[in-house]
Amino acid sequence: MDIAVCIKRVPLSPGRWTLTADGTAIDTSGSAMGWTLSPHEECATEAAVQLVEAHGGSVTAISLGTPESQEQIRELMAVGVDRGILLETDGAEWDAQATAGAIVDALKAAKPGGSADGTAASNSTDFDMVILGTESADTSGYQVGVRIAHALGWPIVTNVKGLSVSNGVARCERVAGAEREVYEVALPAVISVKDGLNIPRYPSVPGRIKARKKPIDTSNPAHPGQRIEKKSLALPPQEVGTAEVIGTGPDAAPKVVEILKEIGVLT
């Protein structure tokens, strides 16, 4: 089974966000800023690695982003991803339609487990499954997976929190209140998952060493233009406050009881 996972590098701040002076982006210049993946995508990758461990095959990570996204692809290689495809951008935003289009082109051009020949020879892909997040961490578009599925003519199940594959059929569960809804689709299929599907493994030292030698193919897709065009960002109004320190250590307990009574949660 050859599986592609789609992942996106996103900023991670240790505290509050701040915006750039022109108000169009999150300020990532601070020394404490880091970069990471969405938990949904970490779970997508873990699911793909587990399926390949059980059924054989390969996992390819595809990302559309800046050249630095190699860092996130390498991290996933350390936990079992075999190959990477980086669709390099200059950091400009790509909306979901543009992103899905570029990923679909890459899926068609790639030879899973082999090297990409760079040409979209046919209108289909050699992958058996695409697993991604239900929504990206930053744009929360809820649609890249659905658009990929339509372009490939494949079924898609979204919001998946339980996944197993047998005899070429994926059984998917999603949570709706106190119930789990069950869906079954024949492969090939797109599955978009949610955090909580599994517990992603941590990379091992041998895993990290192996990751360094794994191949990442890069290309520079042309940006087709934004149909959802960002004008500016804003931070929601919030009470920027400082908590009133009501004590240090266990001595604060009586004051807590007072507060609980005051706000009516303790009567």
Binding site: P14, G241, A243, T248, G249, P250, A253, V256
Partner: peptide
């Protein structure tokens, strides 16, 4: 960072507080 969202804070080890 939680201190700038919380209304009240207790500075201390949660295992004793």
């Amino acid at each position: 960072t939680i201190m700038s969202y919380a209304d009240y804070a207790i500075i201390g080890d949660v295992s004793t507080v």
